[in-house]
Amino acid sequence: MKIEVRLTDKADAYIIKNMYPLYLHDLSGHYGLIPGHTPNKHGIFEDGDHYITLNDQYDVQNIWWEHSKSLYPYLITADDRPAGFALIATPPYCSQGVDYFVSDFFILQPFRGNGVAEYAIRTIFERFTGKWEVFTNPSQRNVIGQKFWRRTVSHYTKGNYEEGLGSTFDGEKLIFKFSNSSL
């Protein structure tokens, strides 16, 4: 399988935007009936009932293509088909003392379990040198995600990373921190 990871621009932003509702639906399975992780009255996975169509939701994501010096929207393809995306943030869109933050990472179901996800995120880690941070949901509903990040970060850093529960702008999370400056 040929896997590619490429930075997108406004011309192909629609591909990530098309997958984004699937990502939010996928996340809802990790959170259950927690407000903000269920659809609004119009069936859109966004806070607030003012999002009536998926087109309304598209505008929320435009920030990723408006700040090209600090936000990096990557499209992941497998055999020239969209397989997922990674949204990487830098200051001021991440925690103090962090250079790079994996804001969102998603692989479509047909491409899971065959190395696409790990190859893609390792490729992105290699593109940026510095202090990294990754959050994931710490609940039992997200054991697969926790195992993925633990295994991937551990392999990438050869075990040289920090892991712990912590409070974030998005609530309590399992947080992975590492630096690839000396790897």
Rank of each mutant, 00 (worst) to 15 (best):
122 R>W: 01
102 V>M: 15
123 T>W: 00
36 G>N: 09
109 Q>R: 13
147 K>P: 00
83 A>T: 08
140 Q>V: 05
37 H>S: 06
124 I>E: 07
90 T>E: 14
176 F>R: 09
97 G>P: 04
155 H>V: 02
87 L>T: 10
134 V>E: 10
108 L>T: 08
143 V>I: 14
169 F>Q: 13
87 L>D: 14
77 T>D: 07
153 V>Q: 05
41 K>L: 13
30 H>F: 08
146 Q>S: 02
141 R>K: 09
148 F>L: 07
78 A>M: 13
97 G>R: 07
61 Q>W: 14
148 F>H: 05
150 R>G: 03
77 T>W: 09
35 P>N: 02
149 W>K: 04
87 L>C: 12
48 G>W: 08
72 Y>N: 08
87 L>A: 14
167 S>A: 05
60 V>Q: 09
173 K>R: 15
126 E>Q: 11
35 P>V: 05
100 Y>E: 06
41 K>P: 06
79 D>V: 09
65 W>P: 05
35 P>I: 06
138 P>T: 03
172 E>P: 01
61 Q>R: 06
96 Q>E: 14
65 W>Y: 14
171 G>W: 06
30 H>T: 09
56 D>C: 09
146 Q>E: 04
162 E>Y: 09
43 G>Y: 11
39 P>C: 10
79 D>E: 15
68 S>C: 03
30 H>L: 11
71 L>K: 15
69 K>D: 15
58 Y>G: 02
128 F>Q: 01
70 S>I: 14
32 G>Y: 05
43 G>N: 09
174 L>N: 08
66 E>F: 06
141 R>C: 00
173 K>C: 12
32 G>C: 08
42 H>N: 15
34 I>C: 01
49 D>W: 05
90 T>V: 03
96 Q>T: 13
92 P>N: 12
45 F>G: 11
105 F>S: 11
42 H>S: 14
125 F>K: 03
100 Y>S: 02
91 P>C: 04
115 G>H: 11
136 T>P: 08
140 Q>L: 08
87 L>M: 15
132 W>P: 01
122 R>C: 10
133 E>W: 00
105 F>K: 08
132 W>M: 02
98 V>C: 07
88 I>P: 02
124 I>G: 04
58 Y>K: 14
135 F>C: 02
68 S>I: 11
139 S>F: 02
127 R>H: 07
74 Y>E: 12
138 P>S: 02
165 L>W: 00
169 F>D: 15
132 W>S: 01
99 D>G: 13
